[in-house]
Amino acid sequence: MSHTAHIPSHRKPRPKSASKIALRAGVAGGVLSTIAVAGAAGPANAEPVTETIEMPTITAELQAAVQQSVDATQQVALDLELQAQEDAAAKKAAQTAKKAKEEAERKAEAKKKAEEKKRAQAAAQERASRDSERTTLSADTSTSSNATGSAATVVAFLKAQLGDAYVMGATGPNSWDCSSLVQAAFRQVGIDLPRVSQDQSVAGTQVGTSNLQVGDILYWGGAGSAYHTGVYIGDGKYLDAANPGKGVVIQDLSGYPASGAVRVL
Protein backbone atom coordinates (compact mmCIF):
# COMPACT_ATOMS: atom_id res chain seq x y z
CA MET A 1 0.00 0.00 0.00
CA SER A 2 1.33 3.39 -0.78
CA HIS A 3 2.41 5.46 2.09
CA THR A 4 0.32 8.22 0.85
CA ALA A 5 -2.83 6.25 0.51
CA HIS A 6 -4.42 7.61 3.67
CA ILE A 7 -3.16 11.11 3.28
CA PRO A 8 -5.86 13.42 2.07
CA SER A 9 -5.12 15.05 -1.18
CA HIS A 10 -4.14 18.67 -1.07
CA ARG A 11 -5.99 19.38 -4.33
CA LYS A 12 -9.25 21.21 -4.04
CA PRO A 13 -12.16 19.03 -5.01
CA ARG A 14 -13.56 19.83 -8.46
CA PRO A 15 -16.90 21.47 -8.03
CA LYS A 16 -19.74 19.84 -9.83
CA SER A 17 -20.64 21.37 -13.26
CA ALA A 18 -23.75 23.62 -13.18
CA SER A 19 -25.35 25.79 -15.84
CA LYS A 20 -28.08 28.30 -15.64
CA ILE A 21 -30.07 29.69 -18.64
CA ALA A 22 -32.64 32.51 -18.43
CA LEU A 23 -34.65 33.62 -21.47
CA ARG A 24 -36.62 36.80 -21.49
CA ALA A 25 -38.66 37.84 -24.55
CA GLY A 26 -40.86 40.88 -25.05
CA VAL A 27 -42.89 42.11 -27.97
CA ALA A 28 -44.41 45.52 -28.82
CA GLY A 29 -42.43 48.64 -28.78
CA GLY A 30 -38.98 47.15 -29.34
CA VAL A 31 -38.82 44.96 -26.23
CA LEU A 32 -35.50 43.10 -26.09
CA SER A 33 -35.10 39.42 -25.42
CA THR A 34 -32.32 38.57 -23.04
CA ILE A 35 -30.64 35.21 -22.70
CA ALA A 36 -28.44 34.79 -19.67
CA VAL A 37 -26.02 31.89 -19.69
CA ALA A 38 -23.94 31.00 -16.69
CA GLY A 39 -21.36 28.26 -16.97
CA ALA A 40 -19.24 26.72 -14.27
CA ALA A 41 -16.52 25.49 -16.52
CA GLY A 42 -13.91 27.37 -14.45
CA PRO A 43 -13.41 27.73 -10.77
CA ALA A 44 -16.33 27.54 -8.44
CA ASN A 45 -16.18 31.19 -7.57
CA ALA A 46 -16.00 32.40 -11.23
CA GLU A 47 -18.29 35.31 -12.17
CA PRO A 48 -21.34 34.37 -14.35
CA VAL A 49 -21.27 35.38 -18.02
CA THR A 50 -24.33 37.28 -19.40
CA GLU A 51 -25.14 37.77 -23.14
CA THR A 52 -28.05 39.92 -24.59
CA ILE A 53 -29.55 39.15 -28.06
CA GLU A 54 -31.95 41.52 -29.91
CA MET A 55 -34.73 40.14 -32.15
CA PRO A 56 -35.62 43.12 -34.34
CA THR A 57 -36.85 41.06 -37.30
CA ILE A 58 -39.81 39.54 -35.45
CA THR A 59 -40.82 42.90 -33.99
CA ALA A 60 -40.60 44.79 -37.34
CA GLU A 61 -42.65 42.20 -39.22
CA LEU A 62 -45.32 42.18 -36.54
CA GLN A 63 -45.53 45.96 -36.55
CA ALA A 64 -45.79 45.98 -40.35
CA ALA A 65 -48.57 43.38 -40.26
CA VAL A 66 -50.48 45.32 -37.62
CA GLN A 67 -50.10 48.56 -39.58
CA GLN A 68 -51.20 46.84 -42.80
CA SER A 69 -54.28 45.47 -41.05
CA VAL A 70 -55.13 48.94 -39.70
CA ASP A 71 -54.69 50.49 -43.15
CA ALA A 72 -56.87 47.83 -44.77
CA THR A 73 -59.61 48.38 -42.18
CA GLN A 74 -59.50 52.14 -42.71
CA GLN A 75 -59.65 51.67 -46.50
CA VAL A 76 -62.69 49.37 -46.21
CA ALA A 77 -64.42 51.89 -43.96
CA LEU A 78 -63.62 54.68 -46.44
CA ASP A 79 -64.87 52.63 -49.39
CA LEU A 80 -68.11 51.85 -47.55
CA GLU A 81 -68.62 55.52 -46.70
CA LEU A 82 -67.99 56.58 -50.31
CA GLN A 83 -70.36 53.89 -51.59
CA ALA A 84 -73.04 55.04 -49.17
CA GLN A 85 -72.61 58.64 -50.37
CA GLU A 86 -72.81 57.55 -54.01
CA ASP A 87 -75.95 55.47 -53.33
CA ALA A 88 -77.58 58.40 -51.54
CA ALA A 89 -76.71 60.78 -54.39
CA ALA A 90 -78.02 58.34 -57.01
CA LYS A 91 -81.25 57.86 -55.07
CA LYS A 92 -81.75 61.60 -54.75
CA ALA A 93 -81.04 62.12 -58.46
CA ALA A 94 -83.54 59.39 -59.37
CA GLN A 95 -86.21 60.96 -57.18
CA THR A 96 -85.55 64.39 -58.72
CA ALA A 97 -85.73 62.96 -62.24
CA LYS A 98 -88.97 61.13 -61.41
CA LYS A 99 -90.56 64.31 -60.06
CA ALA A 100 -89.42 66.27 -63.13
CA LYS A 101 -90.87 63.62 -65.44
CA GLU A 102 -94.17 63.54 -63.58
CA GLU A 103 -94.38 67.34 -63.71
CA ALA A 104 -93.62 67.36 -67.45
CA GLU A 105 -96.25 64.70 -68.07
CA ARG A 106 -98.78 66.63 -66.00
CA LYS A 107 -98.12 69.82 -67.96
CA ALA A 108 -98.30 67.96 -71.28
CA GLU A 109 -101.62 66.37 -70.28
CA ALA A 110 -103.00 69.74 -69.18
CA LYS A 111 -101.90 71.30 -72.47
CA LYS A 112 -103.45 68.45 -74.43
CA LYS A 113 -106.76 68.82 -72.60
CA ALA A 114 -106.73 72.58 -73.14
CA GLU A 115 -106.14 72.12 -76.87
CA GLU A 116 -108.89 69.48 -77.09
CA LYS A 117 -111.27 71.80 -75.27
CA LYS A 118 -110.36 74.65 -77.61
CA ARG A 119 -110.93 72.45 -80.68
CA ALA A 120 -114.24 71.22 -79.28
CA GLN A 121 -115.38 74.79 -78.68
CA ALA A 122 -114.37 75.80 -82.20
CA ALA A 123 -116.19 72.81 -83.66
CA ALA A 124 -119.30 73.62 -81.60
CA GLN A 125 -119.23 77.21 -82.84
CA GLU A 126 -118.82 76.02 -86.41
CA ARG A 127 -121.73 73.59 -86.07
CA ALA A 128 -123.89 76.30 -84.54
CA SER A 129 -123.04 78.67 -87.38
CA ARG A 130 -123.75 75.98 -89.97
CA ASP A 131 -127.05 75.04 -88.35
CA SER A 132 -128.06 78.69 -88.36
CA GLU A 133 -127.13 78.98 -92.03
CA ARG A 134 -129.01 75.82 -92.89
CA THR A 135 -132.12 77.08 -91.10
CA THR A 136 -131.98 80.28 -93.11
CA LEU A 137 -131.44 78.41 -96.38
CA SER A 138 -134.24 75.96 -95.62
CA ALA A 139 -136.64 78.80 -94.98
CA ASP A 140 -135.69 80.50 -98.23
CA THR A 141 -136.60 77.68 -100.65
CA SER A 142 -137.54 80.02 -103.45
CA THR A 143 -134.28 81.92 -103.69
CA SER A 144 -132.88 81.95 -107.24
CA SER A 145 -135.75 79.75 -108.43
CA ASN A 146 -139.48 79.37 -108.67
CA ALA A 147 -139.37 75.83 -107.28
CA THR A 148 -142.49 74.51 -105.63
CA GLY A 149 -143.63 71.20 -104.18
CA SER A 150 -141.22 68.29 -104.42
CA ALA A 151 -138.52 70.25 -106.24
CA ALA A 152 -138.52 72.88 -103.47
CA THR A 153 -138.12 70.14 -100.87
CA VAL A 154 -135.20 68.63 -102.76
CA VAL A 155 -133.48 72.01 -103.12
CA ALA A 156 -134.08 72.89 -99.48
CA PHE A 157 -132.42 69.66 -98.34
CA LEU A 158 -129.45 70.21 -100.64
CA LYS A 159 -128.92 73.79 -99.44
CA ALA A 160 -129.04 72.58 -95.85
CA GLN A 161 -125.92 70.49 -96.59
CA LEU A 162 -123.84 73.39 -97.91
CA GLY A 163 -120.36 73.36 -96.35
CA ASP A 164 -120.36 69.63 -95.64
CA ALA A 165 -117.24 67.69 -96.58
CA TYR A 166 -116.72 65.63 -99.71
CA VAL A 167 -115.58 62.10 -98.84
CA MET A 168 -115.63 59.33 -101.42
CA GLY A 169 -118.10 56.65 -100.31
CA ALA A 170 -119.59 58.80 -97.50
CA THR A 171 -123.38 58.93 -97.16
CA GLY A 172 -123.92 61.74 -94.61
CA PRO A 173 -125.00 63.27 -92.45
CA ASN A 174 -121.98 65.65 -92.50
CA SER A 175 -119.97 64.26 -95.42
CA TRP A 176 -121.00 63.03 -98.85
CA ASP A 177 -119.85 62.06 -102.29
CA CYS A 178 -121.72 63.40 -105.35
CA SER A 179 -124.18 60.55 -105.91
CA SER A 180 -124.94 59.91 -102.20
CA LEU A 181 -125.97 63.58 -101.80
CA VAL A 182 -128.30 63.39 -104.84
CA GLN A 183 -129.77 60.11 -103.61
CA ALA A 184 -130.42 61.52 -100.10
CA ALA A 185 -132.05 64.69 -101.53
CA PHE A 186 -134.60 62.80 -103.64
CA ARG A 187 -135.29 60.38 -100.81
CA GLN A 188 -136.88 63.38 -99.02
CA VAL A 189 -139.72 63.26 -101.57
CA GLY A 190 -140.04 59.48 -101.69
CA ILE A 191 -137.92 58.84 -104.79
CA ASP A 192 -135.42 56.01 -104.39
CA LEU A 193 -132.55 56.70 -106.80
CA PRO A 194 -129.65 54.33 -107.56
CA ARG A 195 -126.53 54.84 -105.46
CA VAL A 196 -123.89 55.56 -108.13
CA SER A 197 -123.56 58.27 -110.78
CA GLN A 198 -123.62 55.87 -113.75
CA ASP A 199 -127.05 54.55 -112.78
CA GLN A 200 -128.43 57.96 -111.75
CA SER A 201 -127.62 59.33 -115.24
CA VAL A 202 -130.25 57.00 -116.73
CA ALA A 203 -132.73 56.94 -113.84
CA GLY A 204 -135.27 59.32 -115.43
CA THR A 205 -136.24 61.03 -118.65
CA GLN A 206 -133.34 62.48 -120.59
CA VAL A 207 -133.69 66.24 -121.11
CA GLY A 208 -131.49 68.75 -122.87
CA THR A 209 -129.28 71.04 -120.86
CA SER A 210 -130.87 74.02 -122.62
CA ASN A 211 -134.32 73.28 -121.18
CA LEU A 212 -133.55 72.59 -117.53
CA GLN A 213 -136.02 72.80 -114.64
CA VAL A 214 -135.31 73.09 -110.92
CA GLY A 215 -134.78 69.59 -109.55
CA ASP A 216 -133.32 68.06 -112.73
CA ILE A 217 -130.35 65.73 -112.15
CA LEU A 218 -127.26 66.86 -114.03
CA TYR A 219 -124.51 64.45 -115.01
CA TRP A 220 -121.01 64.70 -116.44
CA GLY A 221 -119.81 61.98 -118.80
CA GLY A 222 -121.94 59.71 -120.94
CA ALA A 223 -125.42 58.53 -120.00
CA GLY A 224 -124.90 55.23 -118.22
CA SER A 225 -121.19 55.95 -117.74
CA ALA A 226 -121.34 59.28 -115.90
CA TYR A 227 -118.58 60.06 -113.37
CA HIS A 228 -120.33 62.92 -111.55
CA THR A 229 -123.85 64.15 -110.72
CA GLY A 230 -125.48 67.24 -109.22
CA VAL A 231 -128.89 68.96 -109.06
CA TYR A 232 -130.02 72.04 -110.98
CA ILE A 233 -131.39 74.72 -108.59
CA GLY A 234 -132.27 77.43 -111.11
CA ASP A 235 -130.73 80.64 -112.52
CA GLY A 236 -128.00 78.69 -114.31
CA LYS A 237 -126.66 77.20 -111.05
CA TYR A 238 -126.37 73.73 -109.63
CA LEU A 239 -125.54 72.26 -106.24
CA ASP A 240 -123.26 69.28 -105.81
CA ALA A 241 -120.72 67.56 -103.59
CA ALA A 242 -117.91 68.75 -105.81
CA ASN A 243 -114.59 67.35 -104.54
CA PRO A 244 -112.47 67.09 -101.36
CA GLY A 245 -111.24 70.65 -101.84
CA LYS A 246 -114.66 72.30 -102.19
CA GLY A 247 -117.09 70.01 -100.40
CA VAL A 248 -120.81 70.73 -100.91
CA VAL A 249 -121.16 73.98 -102.89
CA ILE A 250 -123.30 75.92 -105.36
CA GLN A 251 -121.62 76.45 -108.74
CA ASP A 252 -122.36 78.11 -112.05
CA LEU A 253 -123.06 75.85 -115.03
CA SER A 254 -121.17 78.19 -117.31
CA GLY A 255 -117.98 77.34 -115.54
CA TYR A 256 -118.45 73.58 -115.77
CA PRO A 257 -121.20 72.66 -118.27
CA ALA A 258 -123.00 69.37 -117.70
CA SER A 259 -122.99 66.60 -120.32
CA GLY A 260 -126.71 65.89 -119.89
CA ALA A 261 -129.65 65.80 -117.49
CA VAL A 262 -132.49 63.53 -116.42
CA ARG A 263 -135.85 64.50 -114.93
CA VAL A 264 -137.47 62.38 -112.22
CA LEU A 265 -139.96 64.88 -110.76
Rank of each mutant, 00 (worst) to 15 (best):
G222H: 00
K107H: 11
M1F: 10
V202T: 15
Q198C: 00
L218A: 06
I7M: 10
A100L: 05
K99S: 08
Q68A: 14
V154L: 03
F186S: 01
S259Y: 08
A165N: 04
S201C: 01
A60F: 04
Q95N: 07
G230A: 05
K112E: 14
A40Y: 11
E61K: 12
G30D: 00
A25K: 09
L239C: 08
Q188N: 04
W176P: 02
A64V: 00
P13N: 09
E61V: 09
Y227L: 01
W176G: 03
A185P: 03
S197W: 05
G190P: 05
I58S: 11
S210I: 01
L32A: 14
H6V: 09
T135Y: 09
S138P: 04
K111M: 12
G215W: 08
T59K: 11
V214F: 09
G224M: 06
Q121P: 01
T229H: 01
A97P: 05
V49Q: 15
L193H: 01
I217G: 06
Q200V: 02
V196S: 05
K92I: 04
V66E: 15
T57W: 08
Y166F: 10
P8K: 09
T57E: 11
Y219S: 00
H228T: 01
G42W: 04
A64C: 02
V49E: 14
K237M: 10
L239Q: 07
R127P: 02
K117E: 15
A22D: 12
A156G: 15
K92Q: 12
V37T: 13
A242Y: 11
K92T: 10
G236D: 14
G208D: 13
L80T: 06
E51A: 10
S138W: 07
Q95F: 04
A89M: 07
K107D: 13
E47R: 11
V196M: 07
G245Y: 11
K112Q: 15
A38P: 00
E109L: 13
E109H: 07
A110T: 10
T136K: 13
C178R: 06
S179G: 09
